[in-house]
Design a binder for these strands. Structure first.
Lengths: 210, 210
DNA sequence: CTAACAATGTGAATTAATTAACAAAAAAAC
DNA sequence: GTTTTTTTGTTAATTAATTCACATTGTTAG
């Protein structure tokens, strides 16, 4: 397996989530078209993705749920687990902590940071909140590799700089401001306003068409 | 202009946001490579997108910031503005309301919904919170076209069904559960866990590559 | 005035992602 | 036991998105 397409990586993560639900329900096998239905994609797409990771199902029985979950884990997870931090304990930061808490996952949120003294020192869903001033120290101490940026837009740039300085390896930026990082730091940016405007655009298009 | 690529639509939204900031700073013109730098893409990409929407800049002066903002608006906005609702006033719902409040935008968040009696009747950043039981009624009354789903995963499916029944035209689903809607409803789904797992994967890849 | 430069605009080439088409084979139907 | 059905796996074709390469032309420098 050489280079998995970016889109395949995303889908593998999603397949796994769907598969875990199937597993909980006691389902042992699943067809490509069942996975496809859940994810709103085609069965060929699913089969191709699984082909790319070298998993083969059983003809007419489909794929073994448990095996597939494990294989996807081997591919996208890192063995040791990865420590994650959330920068900015506003509503979005809190949403993310709740979201992840209780999930069995190789990604562990081990710290959050804020500048608000009322928040510093608190613990939420088991995640302690530290002062942003101590960010570099704690990131190094706790061997935190990933950071999720949920600070206000005006702090985006300086936060990213501080994270890079602290030796972070990957950033997921949820602020609406694109940030700059050196190329050895993996950066993923997502902008909620863009998504909403996109939906609005296609709704408008549908209206004018139909 | 026939069919703008999906990716172009997303970028136009982002260009506009960047341009508005430039406008505020008093900048009247901007080069393709300046826009590109902000968005971490190439200048050719920017020029091609603008070509697709039929905007032409001035040689050696770049693009007129104000004009371009207006043109992008003409393309992606609908003239009358669009009413938006947020379903689920948890942390994520609140984050989104704050995010949008005070932004001059053709997208107006006019209602939010929740099942928690403590939240119903309150107003946040000018957005009233109604009971989910009244969803259909209020969506029709207020002519709400778009909904942002920020309910817990277990409510995803039933919420989507209710929205469709209420005649919603577009849904932005932030729950980790994919939902099904008829094809005349535009659906966009975003999953934070997938994004984080993707970052983790590429960090792992970078590590192992050296 | 002329040459060098710096920017846009775009056809052609490339790369990425998806879909079509179908062979293979196990299971079910008869 | 033969035929039909159903599902996987994969090559080839197609479509979508990006990048290359370069013509064009206003601007600046000399």
């Amino acid at each position: 397996m050489k280079h998995l397409p970016h889109k395949t990586i995303e889908r593998l993560s999603q397949y796994r989530r769907a598969l875990l639900i199937c597993l909980d329900k006691g389902q042992t096998h699943i067809y490509s078209h069942e996975i496809a239905k859940i994810q709103h994609i085609t069965a060929v797409q699913v089969r191709r993705d699984l082909m790319l990771i070298g998993y083969t199902g059983t003809l007419r029985k489909g794929y073994n749920v448990k095996e597939l979950i494990e294989l996807i884990g081997e591919i996208i997870d890192s063995q040791e687990g990865i420590n994650v931090s959330i920068i900015g304990m506003g509503n979005l930061g809190r949403a993310l902590i709740n979201y992840f808490s209780g999930k069995r996952s190789h990604l562990k949120i081990v710290a959050s940071f804020d500048i608000n003294p009322d928040k510093i020192g608190n613990t939420m869903s088991g995640v302690p909140c530290y002062s942003s001033d101590d960010m570099e120290k704690i990131i190094r101490e706790k061997d935190i590799k990933l950071a999720i940026m949920t600070v206000p837009a005006d702090f985006a740039s300086q936060t990213a700089d501080a994270l890079v300085k602290a030796g972070i390896k990957g950033i997921l930026n949820y602020t609406p401001k694109p940030v700059n990082v050196p190329k050895e730091v993996y950066l993923e940016e997502y902008d909620m306003i863009t998504s909403l405007e996109k939906v609005a655009f296609y709704v408008k298009l549908n209206e004018s068409a139909g």
